[in-house]
């Protein structure tokens, strides 16, 4: 994925955490806005000690999602364990309802029907 927008470059996790992390990490010297790849990697080594709560799984795993394989697809084998994946993790959005409200703001059914 080519990231052309500089704002989507590798960045530090939320600043609050970074500060906490920097406090416990003696591995690397950095300023929170200037994290590079390697600095971030080293930093993470010290990360586990930084959280106020124990890092080991706080709760047990349970199935988040099941989805039947569509009928035109069949399972034909296992995957090489070293095969690389680009996983995209969608975090719950903070205020989507407000975004939807702003999208529809002031629209009436009358506006829509009239233009058909």
């Amino acid at each position: 994925m080519k990231l052309e927008d500089p704002s989507s470059k590798l960045v530090s996790p939320n600043p609050r955490n970074s500060l906490k992390l920097s406090f416990c990490s003696s591995i690397v010297n950095y300023t929170s806005e200037m994290l590079g790849f390697s600095a971030f990697l080293s930093l993470a080594l010290g990360a586990q000690a930084a959280f106020e709560t124990p890092v080991r799984a706080r709760t047990t795993y349970s199935v988040k999602e099941s989805h039947s394989v569509p009928s035109k697809w069949s399972q034909i084998g296992r995957v090489d364990p070293s095969h690389m994946l680009h996983l995209q993790i969608g975090l719950k959005q903070g205020n989507f309802d407000e975004l939807e409200r702003r999208l529809f703001e002031g629209t009436s059914l009358h506006d829509l029907v009239r233009s058909i």
Binding site: M1, L3, D5, S7, S8, K9, L10, V11, N14, F37, F40, L41, L43, A44, L45, A47, P81, S82, H83, M84, L85, H86, L87, Q88, I89, G90, L91, Q93, G94
Partner: peptide, 17 residues
């Protein structure tokens, strides 16, 4: 420990085996 974000931070991208 390596990941990047969407600009809104509502997506985290990781590259793992």
């Amino acid at each position: 420990s390596l990941f990047d974000y969407s600009p809104a931070k509502d997506w985290i991208n990781i590259y793992i085996d």
